[in-house]
Simulated scan of single mutants.
Amino acid sequence: MARWKTYRFHLGSPLAGFSVRMALPVLSWSWFQLRISTLLLLVLLASVIIGWQRDRNDLSDQIIDLEVELAQVRGMKSSWSIEQLYGPPDTLAFGDYGTAWASASADGQDEWVIAQFENEVSPAELQIYETYNPGAVYKVSVFTPIGNEVTVWQGPDPTPQGSGGGVSKIPLETIWRTKKVKVYLASKKVRGWNEIDAIGLVDQSGDVQWTRHAEASSSYGAQYSRGVFISRSFF
């Protein structure tokens, strides 16, 4: 606890001038020790939380590795399923094809997609291959190495509505290295299924990684054989 001590300050010569007396706190050693111990406790607590988060992320990565291996063993993708986002783009034309991901409903709710990549990089750009009813992308976030979600871009979709499709190239200006991004779609504002064929993460050197695992708010996911182009009428 602090105690107070009176100090005298004199301004001027010894024969002329004026003096000021002020009471100032003097910190005791016990108070200083208390503050140091509190700081050390906070540092320890933060270290435990960060370590726990990293272990959790490592476990999540191991689960993803297992799911990717199982998907390769099965050797089959459901049309319009989340697995259609894996790897480089393979939808050969704009339109309603089962080789792209589509949400469960056309306009029932706003949607999101999480794409995970092999390596953690300093990102420069995200490339979103929109193949049907584009224009719904409005926000992108990245996940930091300890799992926090950080919004890095918001704005109108670079591929406009009515254009048929295209590659939305979105700059990712962030100090965080990442291998996991989240794409938000205003699906209710853009009529029809807003289909995405692939998502690529570009690093500062210009190298592109393609999605190796993904999650989505919903998925149409009808069962069809891999690689078959199936068009769906929705009017």
Rank of each mutant, 00 (worst) to 15 (best):
I64V: 15
G12D: 14
I49T: 03
A71I: 03
R74M: 10
D58H: 07
L42F: 06
L66K: 01
F9R: 09
I64K: 01
M1L: 11
R74D: 08
W29T: 13
I63L: 13
V48I: 07
S78F: 11
G17A: 09
Y7W: 10
G17I: 08
V20S: 13
S30H: 04
T38C: 05
L41Q: 05
R35T: 13
M1A: 12
I36H: 08
L34M: 12
W31T: 03
P25T: 13
R56N: 08
S79N: 13
L45W: 08
R54N: 00
R54M: 05
K5Y: 08
E69L: 08
S79C: 15
L15Q: 11
R21F: 01
L11E: 12
G12M: 11
F32W: 08
G12H: 07
T6G: 06
R74Q: 12
A71E: 07
S47M: 12
K77Y: 01
E67N: 02
T38L: 08
S79F: 02
R3M: 15
M76D: 13
V48H: 03
L27W: 15
L66F: 00
V43R: 01
Q72P: 00
L39P: 03
D58I: 12
A16D: 09
L45M: 12
L11M: 10
V43Y: 02
L11H: 12
L34G: 12
D58Y: 03
S37V: 07
S60K: 09
V73N: 05
S30M: 10
W31S: 05
R74F: 10
R56D: 08
R21T: 09
D55I: 06
L45S: 12
V26S: 10
S79L: 07
